[in-house]
Design a protein around this nucleic acid. Sequence first.
DNA 1: ATCCCATCCGTAAACGTTTACAGACATGGT
DNA 2: ACCATGTCTGTAAACGTTTACGGATGGGAT
Lengths: 369, 369
Amino acid sequence: MAEGPTINTIARRAGVSIASVSRVLNGLPTREETVRRVLSAAEELGYVPNSVARSLKNRRTNQVAFAMADIGNPVYLAMVREIQPVLRAAGYRLLLHSTDADVADELDVLRGLGERYVDGLIMSPLRVTDEHLRALAAARAPVVVIGSVPEGTGVDNVRADSRTGVRLALDHLHGLGRRRIAFVNGPTDTVPGAARAAAYREALAALGLPYDEDLVEVGDFYRADGAAAVQALLDRAADVDAIMCANDLIALGALDVLRRAGRRVPEDVAVVGMDDTYLAAVAWPALTSVSLGSARRGRAAAELLLDRLENGQREPRVVTVEPRLAVRASTVGVRAAETVESGGSSWAAGEIGAAGDGGSTGDGGEGSR
Amino acid sequence: MAEGPTINTIARRAGVSIASVSRVLNGLPTREETVRRVLSAAEELGYVPNSVARSLKNRRTNQVAFAMADIGNPVYLAMVREIQPVLRAAGYRLLLHSTDADVADELDVLRGLGERYVDGLIMSPLRVTDEHLRALAAARAPVVVIGSVPEGTGVDNVRADSRTGVRLALDHLHGLGRRRIAFVNGPTDTVPGAARAAAYREALAALGLPYDEDLVEVGDFYRADGAAAVQALLDRAADVDAIMCANDLIALGALDVLRRAGRRVPEDVAVVGMDDTYLAAVAWPALTSVSLGSARRGRAAAELLLDRLENGQREPRVVTVEPRLAVRASTVGVRAAETVESGGSSWAAGEIGAAGDGGSTGDGGEGSR
DNA sequence: ATCCCATCCGTAAACGTTTACAGACATGGT
DNA sequence: ACCATGTCTGTAAACGTTTACGGATGGGAT
């Protein structure tokens, strides 16, 4: 393993001191002649600066980490896809931590900041415990949290707004004449689960619809749980005419069961998903889904972090991303969905933004499993 | 920003030298009393070792990078999901590079190894140019390539075996009585595109079926391309009774068009995808798909790299991962698929392995877009 | 008492950079 | 001729670790 050339090798070869080499390589003013000697020596030797040594001296690594539960989850995936190019453009490399939503792991990551292997961290925990808050307060590097965190935690925070999101969906269903709108949620002890449960009650009330326990099911955030929940729902409340699902995976499970039960979607039962992952466009019929802006949240987080790295003293900021409704066949039917399909973003067919209230009352910064 | 404590701070506080501190923290034999003093000082100060300084001294960073075209592609995603835990268990952090299949970017990553910010690299390029080979030869750290690379390139190499994979699919279709089997491919100047084109011809020959140009379409690896290609196919060869797609996205496009054209899947036309991404299970009808083992390739790559990091002198190895066929509704129908669904892996319904030849004649180590 | 050896620990150098400081030299003004 | 000024470059310290080396200490054998 031929040891690579260092600044010393170059200095000797060019007959100058290492200080001069460093100056030339960093573009500091230097005599023309010296510049030429150094550059050609560097060229000949194929010199590449050692980033570790540089980091040690400069006290910055040009690395940033993103910690989330599971990169396989399309929500986090959408975030990574936005975060990466933003950081890259600013000269940062991206490190990935998959924590499996394990609290101990997440805390480890936070403590690990003391090792100074990254300049900052973006993190999106599923649950936020007191320990999280303490670790955040003690963090040795700037942290941006995606997902709501109490005011005064002292970190930059990017939030979703499930309240408005759920309302968009229920307004849409109500507008289509649906009145028996069920809700299939994930665990209510998670940040998104809790926010979405509350949002459902509120939206019903706003529409003047009664809250009917028979129409509510709670499982986990996966497809199989969605299927089981909807099966139970059909057994108990056969007259359901719409199902609001707390994420797209649950909605996929719903589609499976409805198909098997011979219910047509959307004629008999309309289905709405949440997170507007690309699974929504793959499903059949394509899923109408509430976008909580995973991509936009990712981008916002990256930008907040970069800004904070420039200016460490700035007051912590809270950014809330507005939800949108991507309308597809699972609520309006294949025909109608097609007429609208030309516009819109990469995944969405027709998009409907938040009403008009600015949506900044948001509560849920989420990323459901 | 209170500067964190260093080994020096601890040494002063404990009244010992920095050498002793280091020894204690690294578990080298030391007098009981000293150990206690150092540990309690470290504890009180909340000391965390600086990984950058450590890396500089030790000449290793405990970081590994994975470079691929686009983390949004389910194939690479599957790889990351396997790579991450393997590396993590061995104490390495994972860095991500999304190169957009840009050759210059990929070469930059390879050259960047000289900066020594990682100990090794796993890379999965879509196209392998001469420049790639040169850069690989000159790489300043161990590299594992996922995707075929010529013998003698001197790097560890993980390959898929599309030849066997395509044969599995065509055997399956032939066994179902299909004789007019079309092929929709991606660009043939990519590693996977080229391999799959050749594999299709071979498999046809082995089955005694004629090669009919009318049954072959080439587009890009995306859903829209698949849709366009299949539309053209239907216009030209109305009697097609099966479509082999070069990846799952293309297959999704095929399903769209077939549905619109009123062709039943699989009764009228059977469809097979490739890569067996989780999209296959989401589609309707669920897609039969050739798994080229993205996950297993990811794992193999990570293991090869770890092994190489232990033993830098070892001869380069080639690992070929066996393809499998995940049989689902798009070829055998919903009923039949269900009876088989209980077994199998996380995504696959029924799986069929390679015939019996060991499959190590493989050529294509791929990751289609 | 003397010597030897083992045990423990401190000094200092090294990893590869950046940068404050000061020395060397040339230029121009008086 | 001298001094002030400016430009360029070299010396050395620093970033926070690890580790080779040797010095100090104490115990046991003679």
